[in-house]
Simulated assay, not measured.
Amino acid sequence: MQTTSIITCPNCGRQSAETMPTDACQFFYECKGCGALLKPKTGDCCVFCSYGDAPCPPFQEVRRRLVACCSAS
């Protein structure tokens, strides 16, 4: 499971490597460049799924279970 994601701010383009919580989704993130408060895009569970280069660990786990379930057939 990947626990680090690089968030890219849609306002200023600053990128920052951040550690993701492994047991929850993160709904807000304050950009260290421009101070913008990022929120998930519609349909995404958290800021990492919207602006990160890797989805959050809870989503990674759901995807892993789905692939394992479908592969078992």
Rank of each mutant, 00 (worst) to 15 (best):
P57K: 09
V62M: 14
A68S: 05
T42Y: 14
K41T: 01
G52C: 10
C56E: 06
T42A: 13
Q60V: 06
I7K: 09
N11V: 04
Y29D: 01
I7T: 09
L38S: 03
M20P: 13
G43E: 08
F59C: 14
C45G: 02
S50C: 10
C46A: 11
Q2P: 11
I6M: 08
G13L: 01
A24K: 13
E61K: 12
R14C: 08
A72C: 02
C56T: 07
P58R: 06
L38K: 01
A17H: 05
Q15K: 11
T19W: 12
M1G: 10
T8R: 03
G43L: 10
E30N: 04
S71N: 12
Y29P: 01
E61Y: 09
F59T: 02
Q2S: 10
C49N: 15
S5H: 09
D23N: 14
C12H: 06
A36C: 05
A36G: 05
P21C: 05
A68M: 00
L37H: 09
S5P: 08
T19Q: 15
N11A: 06
V67W: 02
C70Y: 02
E18R: 10
C25D: 15
P55T: 10
T22Q: 10
A54G: 01
A72E: 15
G35D: 09
T4E: 11
T22Y: 14
S50Y: 10
A68R: 05
G52H: 14
C46N: 01
L66S: 09
P58C: 08
G52L: 11
C46L: 05
A36P: 01
R63F: 04
G52A: 12
Q26E: 07
C49K: 03
T42H: 12
P58A: 08
C12N: 07
A36Y: 06
Q60N: 00
N11G: 00
A36Q: 03
A17K: 13
C25R: 08
K32V: 04
A36V: 03
L37I: 02
L38W: 14
G43M: 07
F48V: 01
C34L: 05
S5T: 11
